[in-house]
Each structure stands twice: as C-alpha cells, then as structure tokens.
Design a protein around this nucleic acid. Sequence first.
DNA 1: CGATTATGATTAA
DNA 2: TAATCCTAATCGC
Length: 270
Amino acid sequence: MPEGHTIHRLARQLDETLAGRLVHADSPQGRFAEGAQLLDGATFERADAWGKYLFCDLGVGEVLHVHLGLIGKFRRREFPPVEPTGAVRLRLVGEDSTWDLSGPTRCELVDPGEQERIVARLGPDPLRRDARPERARERLARTERPIAATLLDQSIVAGIGNVYRAELLFLCGIHPARPSSAITDVEFEELWAQTVRLLRIGERSGRITTTDPDEIGRPRHRMRREDRLYVYHREHCRRCGSDLRTDRIGGRPITHCPTCQPRRRVRSRR
DNA sequence: CGATTATGATTAA
DNA sequence: TAATCCTAATCGC
C-alpha cells in the first residue's frame, strides 16, 4: 500500500518504537544477510522519509535505504518475535517491538553521499515542512507531458502514486491528458493544497481516503472501503454517475470522469 | 493449484 | 514501451 503517506507513517512509527533502542537485525530470508549483520547490535537513531524513500540511521556510517516498490511491506510484528512466516528480507527487533520487511525493491546500505544523491533527484515532498512547491510548478510549466504523467514523476513531486494522482485530478477537475504546461497558477495552487491535505489524511489514518465525510454521510474512519475513493478502480462517477474512462498515461492506468474532468475547461457562466 | 493482481521504479531496447 | 524484480492475497477451475 505504498504511496508517500505510507512511508512517512512508517518512518514515524519506526521512530516511536525503535529510536534510541538497541536493535537486533537479521535477514531470515537470507537476501540481506550481510547488511543485517552490519546493523545487528546498533542503536536505532532515526527514520526519515523523502517521498516514497525511507532512510534509517543506525549510526553505523552507512544508512539503511528501503524502497517498498509496489508490493513491499514493513510491518510491525509480535514481540517477543516468533518465527516469521513468508519471505522476510530484514527483521529489526528492538527492546519492545519487532519489524519485518518483505518484498522491497530496495533494501541496502548507502553512504551519506549516495543518500544525498537519491534525495537530490526528488521533487518537493508535500509531506515535508521544507517542501518548495514552486520547484514543481516550474517543472510543470516547462513540459507538454500530460499532467497525469508528471504527477507520477518523482523528480517533479515526491510521494504521489497511482491512486492519489487519479483522485487529485478528479478533485481538481483536471483532465489527465491536459499538458502540464497548460495548468494555471490557480489550478496548481489547488492541486498542491489538495495533495498536502490528502497525503496528511493518509499518513494519519494509514489508508487512502479522498472522499468527503459529509458527502458520504459517515466519519472518514468509518467509511466502507468502496466509499473512500472517487474514481480509482471505479466504473461510475461517484459525483455525477457518468461512465468513467480509463486510459494508460505515464505507463499506468488512470481513470477519470469525462463530465467532471472535461478536456477543455468549461467556460464559467457569468 | 495455477493465474492474476497490486498504491513502484529501473533497465534495456 | 516492454521486460523485469519482489511477495502475498484472491480468484477461477
């Protein structure tokens, strides 16, 4: 379930449960045996998220870099630990918590220079206080690539994934194929504000919810699964009932509502 | 039990 | 653009 909100939530929970604690590390599955050995017995200092990239500093010189990819999970497990089920690349056991990493696309130790290089390739992260949205704004203005493609480009904005991009474009009433350069300043402001808002909700709750509790008629945390999204994985528009359309943009499917997200902006009535 | 699917990203072509 | 990697839940037969 990894878009930026997942990684930030994870960083916070790792901090809460492991920071300042002595940690035992191992690789039950065996594919990160050397790295785990290096981390074993270290003190967990801090976890930090940049977009979908997670870094854990255990004060051993190199930093643990984890990227969950599409299917990776970093889950809290029973303490004291029991024999893991399935393929666990890395297990971290603190003084009162157990964490299992499975299926990551990256799990490696990187030196601080390499960490810097990774972070330098990323666009502003809406979940970071120091984010500079104007960086993203400038990039968008300079490319004709469809907005649905640039929103997935982590070097432009860091942390948006396939669910959030579809939902954001719906909420902002923007057609996915619109050239990025045609996004107006006002639209960008709203896009950024919504991104921050939705990612924060996701980080707090641990799940992606983009619908309005008033519109659904029940509090966000008690919404049914099928009520949490406007367009992603849906057939009909929750707002107007139109048949939704799914296209492949930026290499991945995106669904939009032809009525709520017209290709040309509807002339506002005066 | 095999096939399919998934909120991702890199590499090769 | 396609192929590839990684894992586990779910679905159809």
